[in-house]
């Protein structure tokens, strides 16, 4: 279908983008790859007066090493994230989760920042960012600020990005040498996650020294499975330990019910998949 009429601007710097956003007022929407925005426009579920395309700001696509972090520009396409050696080496979990996002066409168009800012709880990358304590760099008229992943995700499709602000970069601490796995469960190969579990483990001599576990689509935001993490630390990476820890997977969740899965099934899946993800990560 054809979207309702809108103005289109393509700024070439973050400053210009912020200005365009201020000029656009309440109705302005950011285009950051368009894999969620364009369907909504085409179905006329949204009719913004102006669409601000961030695709013309080269520095927002950059992936770089920033001391003990890997800083990924918000407009880096999933495909770039997937192929980036810094990401593979230091943030392997992000790489693995990104590989499960939709299909190659979507991964070439869709961006890391776009997906995180959209904050769909069924999206795969929020649980990773949350589990790995990523930092979100947000630019506005008065400069930039940084928020933690825990602060960033607030509700369904709602983040800490304020009016007039733009997500510019996502910084991941290095998890070099950690063992990771993203266990995704969906109805068809390219569908959204019904439930998914992101796991990163620091394994020392067969025993789990640190654990980070995030859940996809088990609430209105990505959810950190702190109970699972606590139960894993200090354990040998065995099936029994994974199973025991997985029993904590639904703590603090509020699983949605929809056509794919009712809440009780999602809760069951969260436990089963957490156990599997931990075992797979531990290798």
């Amino acid at each position: 279908m054809i979207p309702a009429k809108f103005d289109y601007v393509k700024p070439s710097s973050v400053e210009d983008a912020v200005r365009a956003l201020a000029d656009g007022g309440d109705d302005a929407k950011i285009l950051a790859g368009g894999q969620s925005l364009l369907p909504v426009l085409r179905l006329r579920l949204a009719a913004p007066s102006v669409v601000i395309d961030l695709g013309g700001i080269p520095e927002l696509r950059r992936i770089r090493e920033d001391g003990d972090r890997i800083a990924i520009g918000a407009m880096a396409p999933h495909h770039d994230v997937l192929r980036d050696e810094l990401v593979t080496q230091h943030v392997e979990l992000l790489s693995k989760a990104t590989a499960t996002v939709a299909d190659p066409q979507v991964r070439h168009r869709g961006t890391l920042g776009g997906a995180l800012a959209h904050a769909d709880p069924a999206g795969d990358l929020g649980a990773v960012a949350l589990a790995l304590d990523a930092e979100f760099v947000i630019a506005g008229a008065s400069g930039t600020r940084t928020v933690s992943a825990a602060e960033f995700f607030q509700d369904y499709f709602t983040t800490a990005i304020g009016e007039g602000e733009i997500l510019t970069e996502v910084r991941f601490p290095k998890y070099t040498g950690w063992r990771t796995h993203y266990e995704k469960f969906n109805r068809t190969a390219q569908a959204w996650s019904m439930v998914a579990v992101a796991v990163a483990l620091k394994v020392d001599g067969g025993s789990i020294a640190e654990a980070r576990v995030g859940l996809t689509n088990m609430g209105t935001t990505p959810i950190r499975a702190s109970g699972v993490e606590a139960a894993l630390v200090g354990q040998q990476a065995t099936a029994d330990a994974a199973q025991a820890a997985a029993e904590h997977a639904t703590e603090g969740t509020a699983a949605p019910s929809d056509a794919d899965a009712a809440a009780d099934y999602r809760e069951h899946l969260a436990r089963v998949l957490t156990g599997r993800a931990v075992l797979a990560a531990a290798g």
């Binding site: 909504v40 179905l43 579920l45 769909d120 069924a122 369904y156 929809d258 056509a259 899965a261 099934y265």
Partner: peptide, 22 residues
């Protein structure tokens, strides 16, 4: 087990999740 609801998806939102408030 729970009944499976089929009425919480919105037609054509093109989204992975549906916000019950919207």
């Amino acid at each position: 087990t729970q009944e499976t609801p089929i009425d919480t998806h919105s037609p054509g939102a093109g989204l992975g999740s549906i916000d019950p408030n919207n």
